[in-house]
Amino acid sequence: MLKTESPPPQGPALDQCPTPQLLAWLVDDQQQALAAVQAARPQLLAAVEAALPRLRRGGRLVYVGAGTSGRLGVLDGVELTPTFSWPRERALGLMAGGPAAMFEAQEGAEDDADAGRRELQALGLTPDDVVIALAASGGTPYVLGAVAAAREAGALSLGLANNAGTPLLAQADIGILLDTGPELIAGSTRLKAGTAQKIALNTLSSALMVGLHRVHGCWMVDMRASNAKLRRRAQALAERVGRATPEAAQAALQACDGELKPALLMLRAGLDASAARAPLQRCEGHLRLALSMSGLQDDETVPSGKT
């Protein structure tokens, strides 16, 4: 049996233990998820280094999975737009069973390898696209069909699985093993296998966004202030990073339609909105480089009090 399908050695009788002990076991078991991702850092590094040049040329991120893995992939892709202003059309999510599977399990759909292949082919993949394929078992036919289509198109395929020696790890261009071992509830990969996938996806996509200059220091400078919370956050960042008064920060954000990067360049370099966009365009949105091109140096690295 796969590790994720097997009970832990001398597994406790969860249904017979007191609730405090049950909670302790469930929480403590999650620690293995972080350890699994830490062990996979070399593969995650290889994935980032292989994906970045493709994304810089205009490639897309395509997440593929079934069940819990598929939902985690869709979630990671959806969050890239509000967090980093990543274009929605460049973060696509495919789930076995279609969009309805996000809310209601479509258990049989994951067994259809041809569907995975067809649905990925329908996207018109190019060699610059990056396919992130997720399957805790490492052998989900739908996901393997999608990986086959990715390889046929010359796209980069990254395979994340929680069981060693499985087809997904072998067939993807870069296999990323998240070895979380047996689940406390045998076969329930929504537990620490899912946690490890979430950590790995957070790590992978965040590193890619940093590499694409969508973060400055540790600030989300590529977000768009589209609601009250984000407007407050943008205002605070414009004051802090732009070294501006509240009134000046607000005026710059309004002139730049809520976009932080040009607003920050306006504030720091004394430019108008149109002039602030020009250096950003020349250096592919790299705010630190744009500041340097404007004759400014920036020492903004981490919030005060942090090291």
Rank of each mutant, 00 (worst) to 15 (best):
L212F: 13
L14R: 03
F84V: 01
G181T: 02
L267P: 03
A51F: 01
Y63G: 02
T19M: 15
A269P: 04
T166A: 13
C256N: 07
V210Y: 03
L204R: 09
C283E: 03
E284L: 12
R151E: 15
G217Y: 05
V74M: 13
L55A: 02
L2P: 10
L72V: 06
Q235L: 01
L289C: 12
L280Q: 00
V147R: 10
P246K: 08
P127K: 00
E247K: 03
V210M: 07
G77Q: 11
G165Y: 15
E284P: 13
V210S: 01
L22I: 02
R268E: 02
A275Y: 08
D272E: 02
L72N: 02
E89H: 13
V302G: 12
V221A: 07
R277C: 05
V241I: 11
P82F: 10
A290M: 10
E119G: 08
G242N: 00
A133Y: 03
R71F: 06
A225Q: 10
Q21D: 08
D173S: 05
L144I: 09
A24Y: 12
A249L: 00
L287I: 09
A153E: 05
T180N: 03
E183G: 05
R232L: 13
L208A: 13
A238Q: 00
S294C: 14
A146H: 02
R60S: 11
A149T: 06
S274V: 13
A278Q: 15
H216F: 11
R282N: 12
